[in-house]
Every structure is written in C-alpha cells, then in structure tokens.
Write a protein that binds this DNA or RNA. Structure first.
Length: 509
RNA sequence: GGGCUUGUAGCUUAGUUCGGUAGAGCGACAGACUCUUAAUCUGUAGGUCAAGGGUUCAAAUCCCUUCAGGCCCGCCA
C-alpha cells in the first residue's frame, strides 16, 4: 500500500478505511451478491405502503449517494440503474459492533447490498428499514459533491464514468443513443435488411472524400487504412446477391476535431437493390421520423432555440431550386464570370476557384444555403464532379441522382442511386485520382477490385448513409458531438509528476 | 489553421476591474444527535492559485511563453 501513484487520485482517508476493513476480516470486493429486487421494482411493488413496515423483505444493491448520520441511526440514499431509494439503518437493529463498523468504514460512493423491510417515513418517503448490510465494493476515489455534481466539461469527457455516476442527464443521453441504434436495427430488420460487418482495416480506402488514418500490419508487412466509409464493401455484397444490406459502422477520419466532428464516428449505411435515390429519401424519412416518434412520442422536438418538425414528408428540393430560392441566385441565368461577381459580392470565400455553372452551384449552396436549412430538408441532384459514386442523372446532364438531408444546417444523411456502370466508375475514379495527384488530400483512390466487382454486375441500387452521432445530438438537444460520444477523443492531459519520474527512469535503463 | 475565452482545495466556487498574508459551501477528519432527506450543531486539517519566465519592495491579480478545455470561423459527416 506504500507505492500507490499519486496520479490515480486515490483518497487517503478511504485507503485508511481499506486497512480497517481488512483487519476486521470483512471482504472488500466479494465476487457476487444475490440481488433479489431492483430499486425501481421495490418502489413499484410498495408504492402504497404506509408507515407500518412490510411483512415481506427485500434484498437490493447499489451505490451510496448521500449519508445522513444521526448518531444511533443513519439515513442514506442508495442508487442503482433503475433509481434511488432511501435506507434507514438503526443501531438497535444491527447491534453496536456492526453499526459502528458501518458508521466508520462505509461511506458515500461505496457499493453495498442490503436486506430489510419497506416502510414509509413520517414525511412520506418510501424507505428500506435495513436488517443487514453487505459491503460489495469499497470505493477509494472520492465522488464529486452532492449539490453541484460534476460540472467541469473537460472532466466529464475525460472521466465519463464519474459523469455517468453523478449526472442523470448524461445517463439519459446515452440511454437515448443506445435506443436510437437499436431502433434503427429493428426498423431495418423488420424490413428484411441483413446487417453485415465489413473491413475496418482496408488496403485501399474509399466511399467518401476524407483523409484516412494509416496503420501497419507486421506480418503482411503492409500499410492499411482505417476505413473512412463502409460503402465500397457493402456494394460488393449487393454484387454478391444480398439485396438489402446495412452496417452500423464506425468510421475514422483524420481531420479536425470540433463540436460536430470526432475522429471516429458512427454511421448506418444502407443499400437496397432495384431502388433509386428517391426510394432512399423515403426510407431515410421513415427511419428518422420513426426515431423522433419513438423517443419523443410526437413529431416536433425542441433543439436549442428551434422547434424541428419531423412529420413526413420532409421538404424536398433540387440543389438548383435551393440556391435560387434561398440564395436568390439562378445559376442558369448567368455566365460563370457573372456568378463569380455575385459570389464575391456575397463574400463567399474561394469565389475564385469555380469555373463552371455547376461548380458555382455547389459554392453558393455550401456558402449561402446549407446553414439556413433548419427544418429537415432533402436537397437532391448534385453535380457529377463531387459525386464520384453516384449514378448520372437520368434527365439532367452533368448531374447525379444524389441527395443529402439537412437538419439545423447539419448534413445528416447522404444517399444516391448507386453508380453501377463499371466504365463510368473507372472514369470517375480516374478523375478523383487526378485531383489527388494535383494535391487534393481528400480525393479518393482507385479501387480496382471494386470496379471489377461492378464488372460482374450490380443491380440498380439505392444507398444512403445516416450520421448517427448527429442524429443523437438532435434527438437529445445537445450542441456538441462530445456530449453524445461516450469517450470523445481528447488531447492527453499534462503529464503528472510521478509519471515523469517513471519515464526518466526508463530512459536510464 | 485564425479569433474570443476559461483554468483557484477532492467537488462547486469568491477574490483578477484598481497588485498588499488565498475565503466559503459541500466533502474529509474528531465529536454531539434514534423519522432525516442540500439533515443540523461544534471543532480540525487540506491550496507550488494549470506550468514556466518576466515586471515590482510585493503577483492568483499586470506582461510574455507553453499546456489543456470551451465557444465561434475555416475544413469535413
């Protein structure tokens, strides 16, 4: 017990109690406890209990959150995942020796099991009148204070376990997150989609425009990329004959971190044979409105200062119409030079780069329209140049059958009629590759095997990817992605003194 | 990458404008208390004021550098 690193933040007083408990021969960390009732079950079963103690006894377990010591009695609040309940412990019932032991060595933060009878106190609170206390886990770290809990945002992210212990609101967010994922799975399962797991370690990355993480396989002596999207593998499955597939996928992108971006994030990608981008819009709308309904019981939800309305159908408009309507620019009515002047007048950055009407369309859309799309809005028909995996539009030359869903100015979903023409796909990849060679770090690599797969023939297919983290942000009214990711990526903390000593020693060896 | 901003005891914080011995509540520790619930009451300990440097008789406070966080912008999903 003499070599506990200071960086662990173990509490001296609690470590002293460990010694006392050991001396008393009481197990500090027993392996199992036969819990018969959860706290919520007890509260439900005894909701009508009066002041008189129940005949029936209960056995439950949990963490101690507050202790009110009255000398010969103790009131404490015990909490498990289902809720909290008050305990009433008396010296008369336990005997002097056991009562004093508990008084001295068991405290806030410890996990205990109790057996007792249920009653209602004078002031009306359902309480367990405790006959027996079993220590199940001695906590050696002090919990944050009971009034204010843990507020420090940084600490909440770095020590999420503490955040979860003391902040019910935080637990609520992650319950919702778990629910969102299982609801998505069930929704797709009910429609006979099959979920598959495709490689995260990929020799060639693709499926999105982004910078990848790289890693190295020692045995193969080969460089690998962490996937930026599962897209190209899921489409190989459609080639293989699975007609309705999806993956709840963790993707990795080596880019900046901010309130909307974490280096690893979750998407669900869905592909369905014999469907097109319009069908996928409908599917997306179905899933999202279903989630809103399931979590909130209605289609309207509050997000920040906005009320978002998810009653289908969502608004749908082409990118040209969106730019005409919201930015007030009719792309087709102007020459590129005129468009450049309009862009400059509107103070859009990078107004010098585009050269064609379609390139300006994207510029105006991203510069003036996106952020204004607060209510759920599908925007469709994207220029071919920045949609290398989408099928060319059946009616509009130079465009693709692609859509994105925007909510609160954020891109939430991205889908298209999948490109299944292998020669066209080759040409698009070559175009991407040329951009990459010209210095575009986010342009895609040529995935020859994927083109070969398309060479065997993929049916007409609709596909869509939904950003789960952002969806959860909307559904739980959080303004940072870190609030909906359990362990968001953070820079390492300043090195603690005792760790420094360790490192210096190692250098000497 | 740019701008603004925050960092004081285990936790929540006052003090920074205008430099003068670092203060509180909760928690901990010692004690009183048999229906309390932010329990109450008495007492005690606990701080290299994020780190380093500078100015000054004197720095938590002013200046510089660094580290970590937050917000906004750029890039992306």
């Amino acid at each position: 017990m003499s070599l506990i690193p200071e960086s662990l933040n173990f509490d001296e007083a609690r470590l002293d109690k460990i010694g006392a408990i050991q001396e008393a021969g009481v197990p500090l960390y027993p392996a199992k406890f036969d819990r018969k009732d959860t706290i919520d079950e007890i509260k439900v079963r005894f909701h009508a209990i009066e002041h008189e103690k129940s005949e029936e006894s209960v056995t439950t377990a949990g963490r101690i959150f507050t202790v009110r010591n009255h000398g010969k009695t103790i009131f404490a609040d015990l909490g498990d995942e289902s809720g909290r309940v008050q305990l009433y412990i008396r010296k008369n019932d336990l005997g002097e020796e056991q009562f004093d032991f508990i008084n001295r060595n068991i405290e806030r933060g410890d996990i205990i099991g109790v057996t007792g009878h249920v009653f209602r106190t004078k002031v009306g609170e359902i309480t367990i009148w405790v006959d027996q206390v079993t220590l199940l886990c001695k906590s050696v770290c002090a919990l944050p204070e009971k009034l204010h809990g843990l507020k420090d945002i940084e600490k909440r992210y770095r020590q999420r376990y503490v955040d979860l212990i003391v902040n019910e609101e935080s637990r609520e967010v992650f319950r919702a997150r778990s629910r969102v994922i299982s609801l998505i799975r069930r929704y797709l399962d009910e429609r006979n989609f099959l979920e598959f797991e495709t490689p995260i370690l990929q020799p060639v990355y693709g499926g999105a425009n982004a910078r990848p993480f790289t890693t190295y396989h020692n045995f193969l002596e080969q460089k690998f990329f962490l996937r930026i999207a599962p897209e190209l593998y899921l489409k190989r499955l459609v080639v293989g004959g699975f007609e309705k597939v999806f993956e709840v996928a963790r993707n990795f992108r080596n880019e900046d971190i901010d309130t909307r971006h974490n280096p690893e994030f979750s998407m669900v990608e869905i592909y369905e044979a014999y469907k097109d981008f319009r069908d996928m819009m409908q599917l997306t709308e179905g899933i999202i409105s279903h989630l809103v309904q399931a979590l909130h019981g209605k289609y309207d939800i509050v997000y920040g200062s906005e009320t978002l309305r998810f009653e289908p159908p969502f608004r749908k408009l082409s990118m040209e119409d969106a730019v005409r309507e919201i930015a007030g620019v009719d792309i087709h009515a102007h020459t590129p030079d005129e468009l450049r002047k309009i862009a400059k007048d509107n103070r859009i950055e990078d107004y010098e780069k585009p050269n064609t009407q379609r390139e300006f369309l994207v510029l105006f859309f991203e510069g003036m329209v996106e952020e204004k799309l607060v209510q759920p809005t599908f925007v469709y028909d994207f220029p071919v140049e920045n949609s290398p995996l989408a099928k060319k539009h059946r009616e509009k030359p130079g465009f693709t059958e692609r859509f994105e869903l925007f909510i609160n100015g954020m891109e939430i979903a991205n889908g298209f009629s999948e490109l299944n023409d292998p020669l066209d796909q080759l040409a698009r990849f070559e175009d991407q590759d040329a951009k990459r060679r010209a210095g575009d770090v986010e342009a895609q690599m040529i995935d020859s095997d994927f083109i070969t797969a398309l060479g065997f023939g993929m049916p007409p297919t609709g596909g869509v990817g939904l950003g789960i983290d952002r969806l959860v942000m909307l559904l739980t009214n959080r303004d940072s992605i870190k609030e909906v990711i359990l362990f968001p990526q953070m820079k390492p903390e300043a090195v603690k003194p005792d760790v420094v000593v360790e490192e210096v020693k190692n250098e000497g060896i």
